[in-house]
Design a protein around this nucleic acid. Structure first.
Length: 290
DNA sequence: CACTTGACCTGTCCGC
DNA sequence: TGCGGACAGGTCAAGT
């Protein structure tokens, strides 16, 4: 999943569906991805959902939080009803019957309606590549876990243009790697880094500290622009990403340069090339990205 | 310390 | 059709 817009979309979905629900049981089928004891969260109510970088936080009523990272192929899918798996996906874009062999954790939930009826639901954590993880931590100690300790500021939230210029000046790594470094800026991954650099007409291999003030400002604006479009379109479902109802996002229909190898540049018509930067596939227009 | 590379996994696609 | 290799939204730890 997984970059800021996709994780933000999941966060919004969870806010809509699981706030106020109580965790009644937790099935853990792949223990290595789950740290903490499930007994600590059974009986707790989900009170708040947050996103920090690419991580999702479910705050619970008992002072603990569940931190979930979906990495490349994780999914969180919410299904309402006692017979969930069966009815659930009948009209959903995912064809797999859930739970399936990639379902590693199942949260069973219940909540009370206004009229006092109890509804049941499940939240599936699926992950093909098994890179994702779930941790139970004390909410007050959240920032102390290694993932959050060194997390950079959030674009669209607290990263200012001044911050951005300073952090570019401090690095001589290729600018694309700086954008994707979670300790420098939280939330940007490969898709949005590629698109933001194309939008700002900056070559991904430029040393970060070589950008002019004008270029830095253009890149800052481009980052905000692509992330906002990513969120508005519900994220990019290029491969496995789906929202909490199993539905796809549509940012893949708006890719500017990501995955456009061999296709004409939308701005100048030059053929888009694929290079490798920091081990990641990188897409560029040699003519208009300098 | 800053930066780079390989490891962690499974699935898919492309060329021979 | 099968097989091998490259590649995929992300972090980490270990290397230079």
């Amino acid at each position: 999943m997984p970059e800021l817009p996709e994780v933000e979309t999941i966060k919004k979905g969870l806010e809509e569906y699981v706030i106020g629900d109580v965790i009644t049981e937790v099935e853990i089928h792949l223990p290595k991805i789950f740290s903490g004891k499930k007994s600590e969260i059974i009986g707790a109510e989900i009170t708040r959902i947050r996103r920090l970088g690419k991580a999702i936080i479910l705050e619970l009523s008992n002072g603990l939080s569940l931190i979930i990272h979906v990495k490349m192929t994780g999914q969180l899918i919410y299904i309402l009803g006692n017979n969930a798996a069966e009815k659930s996906l009948k009209n959903q874009p995912i064809s797999d019957f859930l739970p399936n062999k990639h379902t590693h954790v199942i949260f069973h939930l219940k909540s009370q309606n206004a009229d006092g009826n109890t509804k049941k639901a499940v939240l599936y954590f699926n992950d093909i590549r098994k890179f994702g993880w779930i941790k139970i931590v004390k909410t007050e100690n959240l920032k102390e876990i290694s993932f959050f300790k060194n997390l950079g500021k959030e674009p669209l939230r607290d990263l200012t243009l001044a911050d951005f210029k300073i952090l570019l000046k401090k690095s001589k790594a290729p600018v694309k790697q700086v954008l994707m470094d979670q300790q420098k800026i939280a939330g940007i991954g490969n898709i949005y880094a590629n698109d933001a650099l194309w939008e700002a007409q900056i070559h991904p291999l430029r040393m970060a500290n070589s950008l002019t003030k004008k270029e830095s400002a253009a890149l800052f604006t481009s980052i905000e622009k692509v992330l906002i479009l990513g969120i508005e379109t519900g994220g990019a479902s290029e491969r496995n990403y789906v929202n909490v109802l199993g539905g796809k996002g549509s940012y893949q229909n708006y890719f500017l340069v990501y995955k456009k190898t061999g296709k004409p540049c939308k701005r100048c018509g030059e053929i888009i090339e694929r290079i490798v930067v920091g081990g990641r596939g990188t897409f560029i227009c040699q003519k208009c990205q300098r």
